[in-house]
Amino acid sequence: MRNRTVVLLILSFMISCFTLYAGAARASGLPPAEGDTFPEILLPSPQKWSEREYLGLDHVGPFKISQVKADTLIIEIFSMYCPYCQKEAPVVNELHQMILSRPDLRNKIKMIGIGAGNSQFEVNAFRNLYGIAFPLFPDPEFSLHKALGDVRTPYFIVVNLKGSGSHKVIYSRVGSFGDPRQFLESISRKSGPRKGA
């Protein structure tokens, strides 16, 4: 009887353990879909003051996307080693410049990049190579990449940050977003009326 209890206890523990891992695998197995709530991931501290200022962060250190002062956040998951990301970099820059050139959008739509499996050195190399002006963050151990569904690169996620509740994903797709102007119009439509508009 005692033996049976011990076995049952071990079994319960193991099942819990398995369930936890299976849950984690399920959570990391799929990227957030359009309409989903964006997961509460913690991003590393921006390297430069100008990047903190761009994101509207009032502290030094890791941050959540809910702390970014914007209505909409565009997240690119990339890798310095990904030829598609390399080809797409000028188009992504064009989108960023387009947003900055629009007084009605420049403080409302922000962009960041997450370098899947890339060290700070590799992220810096990618930034310098393509003259990328928005903040890029390293993810050397793939932890953010895993939390966002082990996606192929480049992958773009757009999150609606308006309101104080959950942050809804309004775009989530692998590969090129196509024409930057049309993409910008599309995400502007999907994110609805802007604060103070």
């Binding site: 398995f18 890798s79 990904c82 030829p83 598609y84 899947a116 192929r152 590969g175």
Partner: peptide, 11 residues
């Protein structure tokens, strides 16, 4: 289930 993940693949 605890095995090391493989690096991100390019599209």
């Amino acid at each position: 289930s605890m095995r090391t993940p493989l690096p991100a693949a390019s599209e």
